[in-house]
Design a protein around this nucleic acid. Structure first.
Lengths: 337, 337
DNA sequence: CTGAAAGCGCTTACAG
DNA sequence: CTGAAAGCGCTTACAG
């Protein structure tokens, strides 16, 4: 248990009676090393409890086998789940993965990118609903970078996300249930690019369908009271369905309705987005879209692998379909007229 | 957007017309640098888009300002939330944070530790319900290490977790509701040390209270069918309450009861554990214990800071109280006799 | 207050 | 197949 002098390649070289260069080659599986030597080097490394200094490796080789993942908040089910799947994919590809949380401001995001870069990552995946475009572009100045699961549109960067047709399709379903006055949530945070894109996609479809639209704006600070006021006002104006930008928001709305004695979907329909974890529970019965987390992670790392290996890989915008989750919170509009 | 030659301290030195040594000192806020020189160095660094190579830093200084966090799975609300709070705390302390996911096997966990170590972290926080003690001890051989939010007991390592009295207290409440035949979930995964400890704590209290106890064993693979069989058997044997090791398990049980037409708590009571995120929703109404995520993260980083700064800081076992969440899934036992 | 030099742990042409 | 040597980007006594 006592903390020893960190063992280096030199120690192994001494132990195995070869040169440091040979140790390096043996450890890296270089083919020109004789089996006998390789064996004894590996033995010595094991015996001494050797841990490779990755910083020194990337310093000396000026290339890196590790990819960095920038997420805003692992506490968010969607991004947490994404991180978890990304880890599985990088494992498959033999990459090391370093994760860091980006925070909510441009400054803290650039700090996070610098942190990753400073640890010598060879590529960065940015998975955060609230990225400043500047942070992504900053990252791209140094290593192949890719934006994942986000509404952010940057023609110069590769991106992987759910097909926006899913959002349009959800809106169409709401319309098809007879709703003609529909509220959409909107975030007040200017950095919440994913939510903004979602809101815009919902609205576009609703406007095309010639329905009345209504905005319920969400502020992080507002709390339940502010949310309640907004919902009340919307209902008073005749809204019969609310499309939330995320399951989390949808759940907050459902809780408020419940407290107020309003029934869902009889009095008002509610839809969510993400369809992950507990929000998927049949007990909640939320009508929502399930994000294709596995496919998103898979496509992202596949693409990243290409970017890291080919000098001038084409940037690509990949769209992955999601899945509609029926639930019980979307019902037919009551024809009160 | 084009990827340039990575700028180094030498480049800054040339630009600012000073020596690399001075650049280093200026960047590190060394007091012996004249204001004028410092200014021009900082300017040059900014202008050139300098990113410090942290690997080289820790290589040269053989000390590190970054702490590593090993979590099993960011997709798990509890650990995801913990990661998110840990980030906030390390930010406060001025540490950099590197996160990596450990996986489920001893081998992948040691790999994760080596990855962190290889990137030169100065300390490691292990937050995973399924740690092999060996992985934690391996980590402790190299840097100050600390186990967080876990049932794992290692006298040689510092640890921070929820006070086990919370588990006992929950069991006592169930008993106080008149239940005399109570099932407890148990995981079949030998590495699930947190769940095992929880199960043991529940059982101890139940046995002390002289109730009949019953085990519902949970396997990752079993699926709903297997779970249903187990629950049915327990109920047939007269069980009137089920204490789940986590909210996630509790929710699965509730879903099964719902499908089977059984009411909770009228037919059977169910309790959870963790009380995080969507599981806390009043719509679910789960009776559970809320883990003190903020306090856990705070205590962990405070302790880690001490371990990293003082040569021989005392190892400590810190217990943080949680909070009982009343919910609606725990009711009085029906006196059918 | 500043610089020249050695060294941290590695890799990689270059010889042999 | 193996070794000696230079160098990656930094820090830090040691001189001045």
């Amino acid at each position: 248990m006592e903390r020893r002098h960190r063992v280096s390649m030199t120690d192994i070289a001494r132990e195995a009676k070869v040169s440091p260069a040979t140790v390096s080659r043996a450890l890296n599986g270089h083919p020109t090393v004789s089996d006998k030597v390789r064996r004894s080097v590996l033995d010595a490394a094991e015996r001494l409890g050797y841990v490779r200094n990755l910083g020194a490796v990337s310093l000396a080789s000026s290339q890196s086998n590790t990819v960095g993942l920038l997420i805003r908040d692992a506490g968010n089910q969607f991004y947490g789940g994404l991180a978890s799947r990304i880890q599985a994919e990088t494992d498959r590809y033999g990459f090391d993965l370093l994760i860091t949380a980006g925070g909510d401001t441009l400054e803290s995001q650039e700090r996070a990118v610098r942190n990753l870069l400073g640890h010598g990552v060879g590529g960065i995946v940015i998975a955060s609903g609230r990225v400043a475009a500047e942070a992504a572009e900053y990252s791209a100045r140094f290593v192949p970078s890719l934006v994942l699961g986000t509404g952010l549109e940057l023609p110069s960067l590769s991106s992987v996300r759910i097909d926006p047709h899913m959002e349009a399709g959800l809106a169409r379903r709401v319309v098809d249930h007879g709703h003609r006055s529909i509220a959409v949530t909107a975030s007040e945070d200017p950095l919440a690019s994913t939510l903004h894109a979602r809101t815009a996609n919902f609205l576009t479809e609703l406007v095309v369908a010639k329905t009345d639209t209504y905005i319920v704006s969400f502020s992080e600070q507002g709390g339940v009271d502010e949310l309640g006021r907004q919902v009340d006002r919307a209902l008073a104006d005749g809204v019969t369905a609310i499309m939330a930008g995320s399951d989390e928001m949808a759940l907050q709305i459902l809780e408020y309705l419940n407290i107020s004695g309003l029934r869902c979907p009889q009095d008002v329909s509610v839809t969510g987005f993400d369809g992950i974890g507990a929000y998927r529970s049949s007990l909640l019965g939320l009508t929502t879209i399930e994000q294709p987390v596995d496919e998103l992670a898979h496509a992202a790392i596949k693409l990243m692998s290409r970017h890291m290996n080919e000098e001038h890989a084409q940037t690509a915008q990949i769209l992955v379909p999601g899945r509609f989750v029926k639930g019980r919170t979307l019902g037919m509009a009551q024809t009160s007229d």
